[in-house]
Every structure is written in structure tokens, then in C-alpha cells.
Amino acid sequence: MHLHLPPRNRTFGFVDALGVTGAVGLAIARWVPVARIVPFWGCVLREQTGWPCLGCGLTRAADRFAHGDFIGALQANPLGAVAAAFFALCVVASALHLAFGVPLPEVRLSPREARGARWALVVAVVLNYAFVVVQTRFPHLLA
């Protein structure tokens, strides 16, 4: 892994774009009650079969994170809470970068490391889904 710290700059880059995305997403989660506004909001799979889908709990995780309930967000969907925290971090980093020119570190991964990172993401998604399934179907196992 190669970590590089560029000189002070205010160039709008990928982290800033993620910051904008995070700011908009977290603002919606904080002030717009999406689940109440959009008709038929909910998971069809869970309603019909009782089993959650891969995305179950993401709305609750974003909503709880945006309201400062971090533990609640983790309980709703751990990976969703981590993603929300990542976007919040991007918002702060982007604000510092664009306002004060704080340089953002550039991470370069070798092809092997990049492959490893992708596999780690796949494993994280599977583990997260396993947690959501256990929490929804077998909550006594977590008690």
C-alpha cells in the first residue's frame, strides 16, 4: 500500500464528491421522513417470507445515525452504520480540504491489495447479512 500526502490544495476530488453525497444523504436521513412519505415503503421479501433482504435496516441505520443514535444504527444494519460513518467522515474531510486546503492522503493499492480489499468487502457484506438474518429470525441467539 502506498500512502501519499500531496501539498496543500483545494482541488475538488473524489473525497469531496463523496462528501457532497454524504451531506445530501445524511441531511435527507435527518430531516426527511422518507419511510412515511414514500408509499409502500418496506421490504416485500421480509413482509411476505419473514426473511430480511440484503438492504434491510439500511433506512433505519441512516436515520438513527443522522439522529446521533450510533448504537441503534449498528443494531439496525452494522455495515449501513459503517457506511454512514464513512460518508460523515468524508463530509468533515471535504469541508477541511475545501475550506482550509488541508491535503487529503492518497491511497494507492497494488493489484493484489485491491483484490484483497474487494474480497474483504464481499466477506463484510455476507457477515452483515448473516447478522441481520440472525437478528430478524433468531433474536434469541443474540440475547
Binding site: G13, F14, E106, L109, P111, A114, R115, R118
Partner: peptide
């Protein structure tokens, strides 16, 4: 520009 997982992927 900076990115999290640069470089060619599997088999590249």
C-alpha cells in the same frame, strides 16, 4: 486522482 483501490484488477 486519489482513490481507494487503484490499479488493474484480477487477471489484468
Amino acid at each position: 486522482e486519489p482513490s481507494g483501490a487503484e490499479g488493474p484488477g484480477p487477471g489484468e
